[in-house]
Design a protein around this nucleic acid. Sequence first.
DNA 1: GTTAGCACTCACAATGGCTGAGTGCTAAAA
DNA 2: TTTTAGCACTCAGCCATTGTGAGTGCTAAC
Lengths: 350, 350
Amino acid sequence: MTDARELNEREQQILQAVVNSYITTADPVGSRSVVKRFELGLSPATVRNVMADLEEMGYLQQIHTSSGRIPTDAGYRYYVNYLMHVQELTLRERNRIEHEFTEKLNDADEVLQHTSQLLALISNQAGLAESPGDDHAYVNRIEVMSVSTHRVVMLIVDNYGRVRTQTVNLDEAVHPEQLQALSRFLNDHLYRVRLDGLAGAIENQLKNFLDERRKTAELALRLLGLAPQQTRKQLFLEGAGHLFAQPEFQGVDRAKEVFDLFEERTVLTEVLRNALADERRVNASIHIGRIGDNFGLEDISVVASPYYCKDEPIGMIGVLGPRRMPYSRLTSIVDFTAGMVSRMLTRLAR
Amino acid sequence: MTDARELNEREQQILQAVVNSYITTADPVGSRSVVKRFELGLSPATVRNVMADLEEMGYLQQIHTSSGRIPTDAGYRYYVNYLMHVQELTLRERNRIEHEFTEKLNDADEVLQHTSQLLALISNQAGLAESPGDDHAYVNRIEVMSVSTHRVVMLIVDNYGRVRTQTVNLDEAVHPEQLQALSRFLNDHLYRVRLDGLAGAIENQLKNFLDERRKTAELALRLLGLAPQQTRKQLFLEGAGHLFAQPEFQGVDRAKEVFDLFEERTVLTEVLRNALADERRVNASIHIGRIGDNFGLEDISVVASPYYCKDEPIGMIGVLGPRRMPYSRLTSIVDFTAGMVSRMLTRLAR
DNA sequence: GTTAGCACTCACAATGGCTGAGTGCTAAAA
DNA sequence: TTTTAGCACTCAGCCATTGTGAGTGCTAAC
């Protein structure tokens, strides 16, 4: 990789040919097959020279002398940024996706779970969908009730229609009147407060409360403190099996690595998050190669796109597959689907 | 497999030796290695003769002429039923398990999820645990509240401390008074009713109700009818990765089959259920070989044991691994753990 | 009934030759 | 100067061959 000079037209053509060919066949591609498949009006020898240049610049690599070339991460990156023409979805495909979202979906989690399934199905890769985290969700309604003498359930409905329950065990019994007061208090003071700032919202006002109200506030704080923090952003992952069908994951060791990756959802969430920061040409951002530092997997790519609620970015959806994946199609799919999710969510949170 | 005559002592010894050896090494075991490892005071030739007999009777098989023998399903079965001496847990191990259950576990689902993790960890196999189904759970408390004009949440607490919420969308708005009446009504009539018979319990009494009460009852029925039936028994499965470490699942195709099996939890539940019917010598029942009819997997065994709540059998827990598994140890682990779960659950449901 | 001996079987690993796809380089053609 | 034809070379994958070792069945002797 000597310098990063611009590629001339022929180089671009050939890089594109190599990437396209490799994406569909998974075989290293040689000079002869390039001229045959793409009819460039050149001889294999010329193509070889160009390929040698591309290799020197770091866009292609050989798995060993005298095998064809395959794209490097940089090669894919160049292809994705400058060469790929996004393959628009057909009307039929768009209708299909839209149709999927007419189903009865009551809250954001249902929407996103469904989304990950849908993405897996139509992309033939693994589908990912992050559900809105506590930093983007607000209390719509909050209710407390006792379920036994020393046990209390707190029920929180957020602006995405999700219902979350948290059970808390108390040391002492609570009177029904106390609970009623507590419910009123919570609804008064936590309405539209962000889910990750419930305790903080009350603490801030604590000094303004007197007597009974103060007691109620302190009880509220105790409850919130005892409730298990299930703040972890949920990540829906569907269709993992598709990956095992790909030739690059045939080896047992590889398969094991993929399996382990799927167990570690936090890492995946991380990747999705970082994808946002990546340079991007189209709406979808694309992560190419090696995920995290602890996983041996170099051969993973992610195509992800943010979804919005009322123009505010909330989370990401996307697909995950082998590095050799049909980016041009997937970006369209992911983008379009993200748009649908945004619309659904905005409607839910009305 | 000519006849099922009893095995004489020497035959038993040798069958046991073969099973033990194969369980630990995963290699077919030959006559010479048997006499070396187990010091029977016999020559290899004699052992060969006995092994030939055992093969004829269907307890052993050869993978090809001139390889050692490995046990058949029948061989394992004989071993498990008559030969195996249950390997008691050490005090240390029992303490370890008991210690795990001192953790704060608030409801049955937490207990059983924890159990599946624990089993996976100490058995080095996949851990299974079925949570109590709707046919063994009773309503302890039931509450209804509106979360928006046309949306209602029904909250059901069962006798195992589990809280389940179901949201229902209605066509028309509901008045708060209606809901209050509804909550009272439900608590009056569904207390201690089995979770899978809620609608039925109300229908049965429908004719006894007049006027407003009848209206309330009908509203209740509508709600219960609209609520999604999440009756599916939950199956916790943990430590699936352990299986991929076993040599019998190294092949890619095998690995894929295991993966598919884990996606199909209903099949697993089925197996656990059937395990109960199996002949059993010790407390734990053992399923050997081939699961279901649609899976190619012949090489799976399950060791399972029921757990109880107040002496009533509720569900199963167990471990799943290759057919070649250390049954003598696993039965103890599973049995003991099942006992702990029973104790925990009985306490929870007091 | 048990054992020693022997010929036989068969999976598995190592070896070597062959093939085909692909390359780099050089010299000639455009 | 750029492109192409030609040629020698490389290397993975396939195939057949061979040797080895663990194990067997059978027979005859103990």
